[in-house]
Design a protein around this nucleic acid. Structure first.
Lengths: 149, 149
DNA sequence: TCCAAATCGATAGCAAGCTAACGATAAGGC
DNA sequence: GCCTTATCGTTAGCTTGCTATCGATTTGGA
């Protein structure tokens, strides 16, 4: 029963490592790739907006943005209308990386699921969605022995 | 096509967060739980052996072991026969946590997959195994545009 | 109008993963 | 029998997550 959790962890770890290696070949780390994906579509978002879309906390985005700024992938601009806001804008360098990185991601996904039939892919997709729905919509059980030491 | 990867990442993240919360209630963090699982079965392993079983690097185990030592969950003992080796031994405190933590893990797995039928669970299991096999036994594609900046 | 409350990004510090480099100990070859 | 080499664990430093807290700015109420 708990075996499925282990497999899920292992698969995700292998995929993340492969993605990081592939992205690194284009000068982008795996976490930064997620930020890029959103900003390619909608440039000039704030860290908070980005965090909400990525389902990650704001500090995570702030730190990633700092590294990406150092790498020349984006710039921070203060919002002229609201001084609390910071807007993240991609540089030409980041835009140039869009096609190759998107392609790398597509190739990885294809490779990882190459031994699955279309039906197996659909089954996997729906099973994962059910788990996600379950975990987001109901609180996991507490269990009887709550001894926090 | 790349959607499956996103779902897999999201599901794993939700499960890991839920596991961390559940384990923390018993004074153990999610990473430490993995070390415990192995040592409950086979006490006195070296960091290297443990890393191999967990499919993690040795420094990861060393750092986790240091935190667990500080938390009073294990002790380091130099191997008398080979001075290079360090053996990790669980404390009574760690042994006392075995039942409740194993139960918490079982409950979490049950909860997460509660909305799946047995057949869906089998499908999920085999699909994940196929992906893992694929990722471990063949090198992912490089892609045409290898511009490392 | 001015001050309290809310909002937002940044910082500090932790967990858990990684690679690279270092130091100590064992083992083997000459 | 010594000295090179291999094998360990550890440390340093990175990425990517998290929570908690701080500082600055805006907003709203009195």
């Amino acid at each position: 029963m708990t075996e499925v959790l282990r497999l899920l962890t292992r698969a995700q770890k292998l995929l993340r490592a492969a993605a990081d290696e592939a992205m690194s070949r284009h000068g982008v780390r795996v976490g930064q790739n997620l930020v890029l994906e959103v900003l390619w579509e909608t440039d000039g978002l704030t860290p908070g907006e980005l965090a909400a879309r990525l389902q990650v906390t704001t500090p995570t985005v702030v730190n990633t943005a700092t590294r990406m700024e150092a790498a020349g992938l984006l710039v921070r601009r203060r919002d002229p209308a609201d001084g609390r806001l910071v807007r993240l804008h991609l540089t030409p360098k980041a835009r140039a990386a869009e096609q190759p990185i998107a392609e790398a991601r597509r190739l990885l996904a294809e490779h990882a699921t190459a031994t699955l039939t279309d039906e197996e892919r659909r089954h996997l997709h729906s099973a994962l969605q059910k788990i996600i729905e379950r975990m987001t919509e109901s609180t996991p059980p507490t269990g009887p022995g709550d001894d926090a030491d």
